[in-house]
Computed example of a mutant assay.
Amino acid sequence: MSRNNMKLARAFFRRWVSDPRYASGWVLAVLLLVLAGIYATAPETVIRGASLVAPEFRIHEVELGSVTLELDSQGTARARDRLGLAFRAAGEVVEVSDNFANGAWVKQGETLVRLDPVPFELEVAQRRHDLAAARLHLEQVQANAKIARRNPSRNATDFALQVPQLKEAEARVDVAQAALRKAESDLARATMVAPFSGRLEQVQVTEGQSVTAGQPLGQLFSSDRMEVRLPVPDEWLDLLAVFGAGPGQALEVPVTLEGRFGGKERQWQGTI
């Protein structure tokens, strides 16, 4: 290198490099050179697309048709027809059937218990006497009314013409007839008969016992028709077509009842 070139280099160094005012510029230039070198030597980046995986499907052929749904529930069977047995009038028990016992089977119309009929017969006789007296009184009033109306005066009142007396006599006959019908009904009901065929339970009466009107003597239930109350979830009601049935209309939904009876597993068919 010539002497002139050396002088120029020293002057350039003193002018640009050693001057603190240009130090930051040189630092920036060096950083740019370093970054350019890194970028030039970096490996080539390969961008690959994501691989696509085809989803799996299962295809089922379906056909339109009716489907029977089975809904499980459980409940307690009870007799649909159940009747408490009692006399309408008080009296003394004079006869009890041998079949009038717990668990016994009785037929419709079979005599179960009989009360002493004498007080009821006496009541019937008394009511017949009252009716006869009422009719006699009515005939007397009718005769008096006929006479009063034959030659009535101008100022004759209804009382003078026997109008209210006639109404009272007719009402007395009506009351006597009603009392006689009640007495005859009580006499007929002094004999208790089975209103339908069935079994007895809760029997509590013996011969010679005095019973009061309405006193429970037992219960009769029919075993040919049973009723089972089954709890059903709310979401089942639409499936059972509960809302489609009209008032008093049976749904006719078949029900199979299963249970153990008499030591054997049994089934019964029913409907809702």
Rank of each mutant, 00 (worst) to 15 (best):
V173A: 05
R181V: 14
A188T: 04
P195E: 05
S185Y: 01
S210M: 11
V205M: 14
T212P: 01
R189A: 12
P195F: 07
A179H: 06
T206A: 09
A190K: 02
A171T: 00
A171R: 00
S210K: 11
Q209F: 11
L187V: 03
V193F: 08
T206V: 14
Q204W: 11
R172K: 06
T191M: 15
S197L: 13
T191D: 10
A179G: 10
G198M: 08
K182P: 04
K182E: 13
Q209W: 14
F196C: 05
E207R: 15
V173L: 06
E184L: 04
V175A: 06
V203H: 15
Q204H: 14
A213E: 13
D174P: 08
G198F: 00
A183S: 11
L187F: 03
Q177N: 10
G198P: 02
K182H: 09
R199I: 15
A178Y: 11
Q177S: 05
S185I: 08
A190I: 02
Q202I: 10
S197W: 03
A178Q: 07
R172D: 05
G198C: 02
A171V: 02
Q202V: 09
P195G: 01
A178M: 13
P195H: 03
D186E: 10
V193C: 10
A183H: 02
A176P: 02
S185Q: 11
R199C: 11
Q177H: 07
Q202N: 14
L180S: 09
T206E: 12
G214N: 12
Q202W: 15
L200T: 07
R181A: 13
G214E: 09
A176Y: 00
V193Y: 01
G198W: 01
P195S: 10
D186N: 08
F196V: 04
M192W: 08
E207N: 13
M192D: 14
A188E: 09
T206R: 10
D186H: 08
Q209P: 01
L187R: 04
A183G: 07
